[in-house]
């Protein structure tokens, strides 16, 4: 057995020359895939309207802050930003509060229909939102949830829950049950064992899953556009106002949308890695 393991581990370390080229070009390609659009967005955001609309394109930013300045003075902009943050924060909290216990139950208990339940969780993503939009809008108007941050957060929570359940499920499954059992024999009940042992171990993963929920809510535009009028989130607000604006403002608006999400993900990248099991201490 040990022989097999050794060669399996050794293989990826010595992939051979051809393998290395494929590997490097793959990395470069993936980086370019992500970075080039972001760079073009940055260049065009920091260029004057004339440069944005002219041809050929320049690949060096001019550091013209005109478009961005326009937005800071734009009425409703700050309100929309605040709404976005509120909705995303509520989504984050709700999806963890609902998703994590479901993930724990899925990983620790055996119950009838467990596999079906896991499948059903994914199926909630199979309903196209446009199909649900009208009934949802009617329902929200009847219950008075329309045009509120909380109502929108509820919709975003349903979108985020499948991920939070499945992510926390794999997190809990990654923690050996013996750790909990050891805690039980050392004077803990189920609740204190969870607090003292499980929670500290999964906190990074929970954080990552929460951030995922935050980003899902932050980027969601359809429900936000349908269900809110006055209290629009940033995405819905920009979608509405930018559709008729000139190109340079569209770039600047896109930039404003992307940057907070990027900063957020960058700040918590350690936890995201933990979520994928890379930086497992």
């Amino acid at each position: 057995m040990s022989d097999a393991t050794v060669s399996e581990i050794a293989l990826p370390r010595a992939p051979g020359k051809a393998g290395r080229y494929v590997y490097i070009s793959g990395v470069v390609l993936l980086c370019a895939w992500v970075l080039i659009p972001l760079y073009l967005l940055l260049v065009n955001t920091l260029s004057s309207p004339e440069t944005v609309n002219s041809f050929p394109k320049s690949f060096i930013p001019e550091f013209d802050l005109g478009s961005l300045e326009f937005f800071t003075g734009f009425s409703g902009m700050l309100v929309a930003l605040k709404n976005s943050i509120i909705v995303a924060a509520i989504t984050m909290v709700l999806s963890i509060l609902i998703g994590a216990p479901a993930g724990y139950a899925l990983s620790r208990f055996d119950f009838r229909g467990k596999e079906l339940f896991r499948l059903l969780i994914l199926l909630t993503r199979a309903f196209p939102l446009p199909l649900l939009a009208l009934p949802l809008a009617v329902l929200f108007i009847r219950t008075g949830l329309d045009d509120t941050a909380f109502g929108l957060a509820l919709v975003h929570t349903t979108l985020a829950i499948p991920f939070s359940v499945l992510i926390t499920f794999s997190l809990f499954s990654g923690i050996p049950i013996e750790l909990e059992e050891a805690a039980w024999t050392l004077g803990c009940n189920r609740v204190t064992a969870f607090q003292k042992v499980v929670l500290p171990l999964i906190l990074p993963g929970i954080t990552a899953s929460a951030i995922f929920a935050f980003v899902i809510s932050w980027n969601e535009v359809f429900a936000a556009a349908v269900l809110t009028i006055e209290n629009r989130t940033l995405t819905a607000f920009l979608l509405q106002t930018l559709s008729e604006s000139p190109l340079h403002l569209k770039f600047a608006g896109g930039f404003i949308l992307v940057v907070p999400a990027l900063i957020f993900i960058f700040a918590v990248r350690k936890y995201l890695f933990a979520m994928w099991g890379i930086a497992n201490r």
Partner: peptide, 19 residues
């Protein structure tokens, strides 16, 4: 419950708390 039995257990995979 295990905690009220006056026992202590040593597990096969040690179950040392990593945190």
């Amino acid at each position: 419950a295990p905690k009220d039995r006056g026992i202590a257990m040593v597990f096969q995979n040690y179950a040392v708390f990593p945190h």
